[in-house]
Design a binder for these strands. Structure first.
Length: 136
DNA sequence: GCCAACGTTGGC
DNA sequence: GCCAACGTTGGC
């Protein structure tokens, strides 16, 4: 079981869209490192922190999981996965909060200049964010 | 294989 | 909307 953070601009696709659709094809990733994670490491059932980038505020808006493992995009040489809606947080866990939270110091998304749209997350980090997300 | 130019991402 | 940081491209 692995844990991931997947970014998307809410103007393109939001947690509400995922809640409505239940599952979606994670199309359009055009970065080799992110592709390699999808192609080589993601497994069905892996847990996903759904992150809204370029948002107000940017942050984790909910949870998802991998519902279909990496399969080839129509456009070579890219890969995609499907993800399934799990939960929407009652409030966004903002990037600022993530940066201030003990235990998340090494989380990729809190690092300056981290543009990778699919990032590995440790179980510890995942659990901390889920705990934050469940708080009212 | 270097690296300048260019395009994109994403916080602010 | 700005622009720093980063990834990619392509000439050499």
């Amino acid at each position: 079981m692995k844990y991931w953070l997947m970014k998307c601009e809410p103007s393109a696709y939001s947690i509400d869209d995922l809640a409505r659709d239940k599952t979606t094809r994670w199309e359009g990733v055009r970065n080799y490192q992110a592709r390699n994670f999808m192609r080589d490491e993601m497994r069905a059932g892996d847990k996903v922190l759904f992150y809204a980038s370029n948002a107000d505020p940017s942050g984790v808006t909910g949870l998802a999981e991998v519902s279909r493992e990496g399969y080839p995009d129509a456009e070579e040489p890219w890969t995609l996965v499907d993800i399934r809606f799990v939960a929407k947080f009652p409030q966004v866990i903002s990037l600022e909060t993530l940066k201030e939270t003990r235990g998340l110091e090494d989380m990729v998304v809190t690092k300056k200049g981290s543009r990778l749209s699919i990032q590995p997350v440790t179980k510890t980090e995942y659990d901390i964010v889920v705990k934050l997300g469940r708080k009212k």
